[in-house]
């Protein structure tokens, strides 16, 4: 359940940070994510950053999907 979307962490202090996506930015709490660093993508839910996006994993998934899509386009 629960809507959450990846946004880029622009800056942060101990409690708050600013996240952005496609020209939209919002102040969120980073209390649940003390390890997140500016420049990283974080998952945002209800005004809180709740996870750091693992870029290696994300890339791997995209490659797998790309193979599926290419297979279909080649048909």
């Amino acid at each position: 359940m629960c809507l959450a979307i990846p946004m880029k962490l622009e800056r942060r202090d101990e409690f708050e940070g600013v996240v952005s996506l496609d020209g939209i930015s919002r102040t969120v709490s980073v209390m649940l994510l003390p390890e997140a660093e500016p420049g990283q993508w974080v998952l945002v839910h209800a005004g809180y950053a709740i996870a750091v996006v693992d870029e290696d994993q994300a890339r791997e998934t995209l490659e797998l999907i790309g193979e599926h899509a290419d297979a279909m386009r080649d048909l």
């Binding site: 809507l3 979307i5 946004m7 496609d22 020209g23 939209i24």
Partner: peptide, 12 residues
């Protein structure tokens, strides 16, 4: 537009 899409995703 991308920022509109972002607002939609954020607010459902």
């Amino acid at each position: 537009a991308p920022p509109v899409r972002a607002v939609c995703e954020l607010l459902g």
